[in-house]
Design a protein around this nucleic acid. Structure first.
Lengths: 345, 345
DNA sequence: GTGAAAGCGCTAACAG
DNA sequence: CTGTTAGCGCTTTCAC
């Protein structure tokens, strides 16, 4: 009872009065072997009645394909929002009949090496290597000979495929929304860390402003730690200026959350006095704020799905050129953007 | 190159000049077979040099143990905060050398059945069946003959083990914190859904008040949807009363977030005018609010770890009495609780 | 101390 | 149309 799937192919064969190869052929719909419809149906019936479930380990051993891939995350647990990647990957793999083994390296290279070893031992057919935030990295050496796709990370070596968010497009969409509402004095509260997302979103900000023919006031572009209090502090400074911006684009929803606080303390209404756009579309943050935060979504699910699809392609088709993709996230409109009201008006 | 682990035990045997059984015995430290230290070391050296990784599928087939368990979640993706459960389970399993296959049923029973079938086929040794929130359920029939542990769910049938948060203790801790600061007029903003968490936290609230000899004013106990705006609306009503509470215990951090907003709009300072305790310790919400929210943590990680441990026990020891556990979450103190100030004083 | 042989459950030629 | 055979890579008695 405890041991599931006790019945084997030979039990089915015995009960159906045929050989095991016939059972195998019948159940796998092998084209070459012409099984009579009658026997085939009988075998199917017996298999169903006995509750036969083929042994995947034996199949894998014989076919030299385990039917599994590994998912290695560095600190997925500390960035709960990235679960969309896991979900996207899992659903894509499921559709292909592939199981996903989940591992967590906690950013510890030694542990990661052991995990890769364990996955290799189980003969996973490929690896999804996920980063908790968009960055550039060198895939671990142990992955050199495995089909690998990087998720939310760019590779330093070109031979490996990866997918990341399109940060420039995201920032453009955010700033575009503000411009479309008539804002001209638009500030940007960036993350002060030197990471791709910060550099690229700044580029998107500048590009959008330039395209609209609006000059960027350097005083309105600032960096801060990407936290609520980082956003709060920076916003207090920026919103107390005489020539304060009418709108603020924030690197993250968390920073935007701090901006809400600061604005409220300064007697400024969101969005009547100051419009805000965030980034990330963090569940329970962006939609939990009052008013709801207009923000740019990170395409976690889509990235996971794309990476899994690319991995499947890598596994089946032998060579396969590496592919590098930047996926767009939607602008999610809520209530934090309005038409500007003349300052002091 | 693509196919990892190409070298097999016979390659190692050939290179070392011994039989494959000797290699197996040497590598697995079989006690019964006395291998000379010299040959053993040589075998080890060769295995290392050749990069031999035993084939887990073959081992599993032979040993009748796959070394894998399945994790089925209903909607993990929509409750990002529950990833702690996954992490806790994975780390416990890893320590035991067991891999975890992740599945997502999206709450669709048909899909779930197919996933269980796939796991059964791969001969997983047990199943972790996780719910996205604390509730009571009937484990799927397909799990009847498998080692199963329910995570964040109570079972309607007694034979299956489960672990849930200790809601009563959590609520008591929350209210105790308020009482310890001298609050007497304490309100409770509960979830208005009929779920175990709501019933049990209310019980904990009452128990704590009773133990402190403080009467519960029914007017200060209210239910609302467990969202930010639910908390906002309820708090506006409650905080506008002449005899408003000096402290509010909220069913969730999300509701507490709404309470912050309402309090601020009413010109009430947190925590000077009104103290607040939440529940969940949601990352980026509880610690993102200003001031930081004092709240009761949900022991996601611990529940995952416990469930995995119990599953391992079930797998190794045959019979194994089912166990049912309620795990306590810590009270996390931040800045939302202060000594009450006399109303109108 | 070590090796030969059997077999875990399955698939894929190849015979018939 | 169906059965026989030969492994996939490993562990485990049991001989020697």
């Amino acid at each position: 009872m405890r041991a599931a799937g006790r019945v084997s192919i030979s039990d089915v064969a015995a009960d159906a009065g045929v050989s095991i190869s016939t059972v195998s052929a019948a159940l796998n719909d092998v084209g070459s072997a012409r099984i009579s419809p009658r026997t085939r149906d009988r075998i199917r019936e017996v298999a169903g009645r006995l509750g036969y479930v083929p042994n995947g380990l034996a199949q894998g051993l014989r076919r030299q394909r385990s039917g599994m891939v590994g998912f290695i995350g560095d600190e997925v647990a500390t960035t709960p929002y990235a679960v969309g990647m896991i979900l996207g990957a899992q659903e894509t793999l499921r559709a292909a009949g592939i199981l996903m083994v989940l591992m967590n390296s906690q950013g510890d290279p030694a542990l990661e090496a052991r995990e890769i070893e364990a996955l290799r031992q189980q003969r996973v057919e490929g690896i999804l290597y996920a980063s908790m935030y968009h960055r550039r990295l060198e895939p671990p050496a142990a992955l050199r000979d495995m089909a690998t796709v990087l998720l939310d990370a760019e590779s330093r070596v070109p031979e490996v495929s990866w997918v990341v968010p399109d940060e420039v497009a995201g920032a453009r969409a955010a700033v575009g929304e503000l411009l479309a509402h008539g804002h001209r004095r638009i500030g940007f509260l960036n993350n002060d860390e030197d990471i791709p997302a910060a550099r690229l979103r700044l580029r998107g900000f500048r590009a959008a402003m330039k395209q609209a023919g609006v000059a960027v006031d350097p005083a309105l572009v600032g960096g801060a730690p990407p936290t609520t209090s980082g956003g709060y502090d920076a916003a207090r400074r920026m919103l107390q200026r005489a020539d304060r911006p009418t709108a603020l684009f924030c690197f993250s929803d968390l920073m935007a959350m701090g901006v809400y606080q600061a604005a409220r303390e300064l007697g400024l209404d969101v969005p009547a006095d100051v419009s805000i756009v965030g980034y990330d579309n963090m569940p329970h943050v962006a939609d939990g704020l009052l008013p709801g935060l207009t923000t740019v979504e990170l395409p976690h699910y889509e990235m996971g799905a794309w990476a899994a699809g690319q991995l499947l392609a890598l596994i089946s088709a032998e060579p396969g050129q590496a592919r590098h993709v930047r996926l767009r996230g939607q602008l999610v409109r809520r209530g934090s953007v309005a038409v500007p009201r003349p300052i002091g008006g």
